[in-house]
Each structure stands twice: as structure tokens, then as C-alpha cells.
Design a protein around this nucleic acid. Structure first.
Lengths: 239, 239
DNA sequence: ACATTTAACTTGTATATACAAGTTATTGAA
DNA sequence: TTCAATAACTTGTATATACAAGTTAAATGT
């Protein structure tokens, strides 16, 4: 479970330490972190490095900084943090999240029309397609359809996905890291397929996210179409 | 229209310059910005300062950086960038956005229950309430209800809001800057009120955003409940 | 002509230092 | 006691420098 910090840059190690202290409750909402100079002394780092770590925490919403006062721990997200990238705020509700493969990865041509504009290379190589349902507290909340360009992805369709994060597999087996992305959000009515998968009536309002993920491979993007039942659980995000 | 850059820190000035060049089309998607060292020479700055400016552009989704290659201009948001804070990506569709006051600012007690947890101070001071409709291409897209704590906000209810951004007034008249925030997102069915304001049928799926904005005043937050008709226009965001 | 090595770029990380500006606690005068 | 000035914090901005690591283009060898 713990992230190995060896090999990581110093600022990243400090970030992981502080992040864990916040998520573990060592620091709670409203607490003031040790000052930058104190962190310098404790971890034998210089202020720019410490500030780099704190800046990362600010960007991910764990803390807010106030000029002249200090770094104040921010309220932790209560809902499901799908609006942020995996491994950050979304990890918080992980214990109650279970995923189930609906359609195992298969190689297919891209849908036409597709939700985002595709490059020639992407179109020509086809995509790896998979469907998944994610349960939160044993209720189906997310029904997502994923599209991965079939470029240099050996043996992908035969890998075992149950209980493993898609992004984890991409990182460990293919050295693909998610760097960010963009998304389009709509409210739609559930059609028959969505209704069945999410256990709602046809016509039920559904949150629809269309996402495009940037990776460390230039020109290589991952696409997801996610349908959420937000009846009981809202989707949460910081900005 | 132009932002005065005098008085701003150097990194911010460079940020504004590059941001404008991107939004004006001097640099288009896929273009590589001048290297950090070139920007240093051009603007007579050092690399940490230049990097500070570039980091800000990265955080707001204008560029992506690739180790060893350079800073690549990212695709500009096409939809309505309400997921980011005002003045950044949201400014792009501004020309087609028109707002109309539905309920002029009035002092009221807070709704009970309220969408976010309120502090004692907030509850005791009451709130300034206002409703607004925003049109995109002359169609009503957003119906938003805003709550501002009635703490040290003299003459707020008598100010003129037409065609002026709420955040602009807060900044210019009360020195309140929005620093970020959090939001909850749901898909709901339009009730009679929402249906009327957004010109849709009752039961139409509506995107509901509940937002809490952080400001530079510690403990001072602004709250908005926003209903969006996403039938034709999706809401856009980067992450 | 081709493949390999090298050099010249690029961004990433890190240190050391200095001063500005906002906040809080202390000190001192009335 | 009360208020104002001061000192001692805090984070914000900025410079100067160095090396690591990824990428690309040029030079070199076969």
C-alpha cells in the first residue's frame, strides 16, 4: 500500500510525507503545518525545495497558504474525487470502491463519431476497448467505457484487470503515467443500457463525463466516457 | 479590457504576456514556446522566475511541458470553462456570455439546511442573496444562486450588477480575491423553477454545481448553487 | 550510405542567498 | 490598562549557480 519513496526527488519525498500525515489525520483541517524554515531544518532541505513540495500540495487541494501566516490544512474531500487525477484526492474513498469488468479489453476500431478529435495515427491503429462498473458502498455508481490507442501495447488484452486499477497497470507494465487531462461534463437521461448497469430507471438524470487523459508519451492519450449515478453521492472536486 | 501589468511581480507579468499570446493565437496548439533560457534573455529574468510563470500556465492548462523538449501549447478549451476559476480559462467564451440579475442582492438568513457547513460567524451575520441567469449565445444556460456572508460588506445590496462580474465587484470594491474552492456536482431533474428559468421541460436533466469559493480573507467564503442546461453546450474543465 | 557516438540543446532538481511584504507577539509609552 | 511602535516571525519574490536527465541534431566512424 505504501508508496516507495526511494529514487524520488527530495521535494517529492517531502510531499509524500506531508500528504500521508494529512490523510492519516496527523494534521487535521485548520492545522498549520510547520513553517517552511522549520521543514528545511527538519528534512535538511533548502527553502525552494520545501516550497516546491508545498506548492504541489496546494495544487492538489491539501493545503492553502496565507502570506505571513503559514500553510493551513484544507478540509479533505468528502465525496468521490473523480474530478482530480488518480492517486491524488481520489484515493481517499478507495476502501469503499470496488470495480468489476463488464467487457474485457478487446481490440476494436474507434467509434465514429468519437467524443474527441483523433489523430491519423490513433485512427489507423485502432483502440483497446473495455467497459467497467465501479461500486461505492456496494452500489453501482460509475459505468465507464475506456478507449486506449492500440499503439505499442503488447499483450494488453490478455492481462488480468480485476481489482487492479487501469492506471496502475499502465504505469507498471507500460511505463505510462497520467499527467493531466481535459473533460466535458453533461447531465443526460439514462438510456436502457445505462439504466441497467447503474440500477436506475430509464430517464433518470445521469452525470456524463467525457475525458481525455494526457500521458508522458507525447501524442498518446487515453479516453474515458463515464456515466455516474449522483442520486446519493455527489462527485467532488477542487479548483 | 487589457489587464494593467504594472505593480505585478515579474513572473506574473511574463505569465500575462504568454497567456495573451496564446489566447490571441500568436501561438497555436502544438507550438513550442521559446525555451526557458530564451525567455530569460528576452525578458531579462532568471530561470526560476521564468519557470514560475510557466508553472502557472501549466496549472491552468495553457501549456504542457515535456522534459528535454520544451513547453507545448495546449488546445484551448472549446466549451464553457466554468470548472476553473474566473479570469482563467473561463474568460475565453466571454464574448458570448451575457448575464441578467433575477433577484437583486438582498440580506437574508442562510438557508437551512445549507449545502456546505457554515461557521458560527457566518450563520450569525446572515448572507447577501442574489439570483442570476447567464445566457450563452442568447440561450439561458446557467441559473445561479449566490450567497455571500454579510460580514463587512457595506452598501453591497445597492450596487449595480448588470453586465459586471460578481467577482470583479468583489475585487474592486472590497479587495476580495478568489483563490480557489471546492465543488460538488450532480445530475438532477429540473423542477418547475429551474425549468422556467432555463426554458426546459420539468424533469429535464440538469447539471447542478454546488460551489464554495476560498478568498484572500481567511474564513470568508462565497457560495454558489449553479444549475446548467448542458443539452447543447457541455461544461469544460482541465485537471 | 548507414549506424553510432558525440555535442548541443531542452527541462528537472537542488542549493545558497537576499530582500519584500503580510501577520503576530512583544515591548514600551501614555 | 490601553494603545502604538517595534521586533520576530511567516510566506512571496527574485537572483545566481550547478548539475542531472531527457531529446535532438550534428559529427564521426565504419
Amino acid at each position: 500500500m505504501n508508496m516507495p519513496t526511494q529514487g524520488l526527488p527530495h521535494y517529492r519525498k517531502l510531499y509524500e510525507i506531508l500528504r500521508k500525515q494529512i490523510t492519516d489525520g496527523v494534521f487535521v483541517e485548520g492545522d498549520i503545518l510547520p513553517s517552511e524554515n522549520e521543514l528545511c531544518t527538519i528534512h535538511k532541505l533548502t527553502r525552494p525545495t520545501v516550497r516546491h513540495a508545498l506548492d504541489t500540495l496546494v495544487n492538489e487541494g491539501f493545503i492553502r497558504k496565507h502570506h505571513g501566516k503559514g500553510s493551513i490544512v484544507h478540509k479533505l474531500p468528502k465525496g468521490i474525487g473523480i474530478l482530480s487525477i488518480a492517486g491524488t484526492t481520489s484515493a481517499l474513498g478507495k476502501l469503499n470502491l470496488r470495480s468489476e469488468i463488464l467487457v474485457k479489453p478487446i481490440v476494436k476500431p474507434w467509434n465514429d463519431p468519437f467524443m474527441f478529435k483523433l489523430s491519423e495515427t490513433e485512427i489507423n491503429s485502432g483502440c483497446i476497448y473495455m467497459e467497467r462498473i465501479r461500486y461505492y458502498n456496494d452500489k453501482p455508481i460509475f459505468y465507464d467505457i475506456n478507449f486506449i490507442p492500440n499503439i505499442n501495447m503488447p499483450r494488453f488484452t490478455s492481462r488480468i484487470f480485476e481489482n487492479r486499477s487501469l492506471f496502475d497497470i499502465l504505469r507498471k507494465n507500460y511505463q505510462i503515467e497520467i499527467k493531466g487531462g481535459e473533460q466535458k461534463i453533461r447531465a443526460i437521461e439514462a438510456n436502457i443500457t445505462i439504466a441497467q448497469h447503474l440500477s436506475v430507471k430509464v430517464g433518470h438524470p445521469i452525470l456524463h463525463l467525457e475525458r481525455k487523459f494526457d500521458t508522458n508519451r507525447p501524442g498518446f492519450f487515453i479516453y474515458s466516457s463515464i456515466y455516474c449515478n449522483t442520486k446519493e453521492q455527489a462527485v467532488f472536486g477542487i479548483f
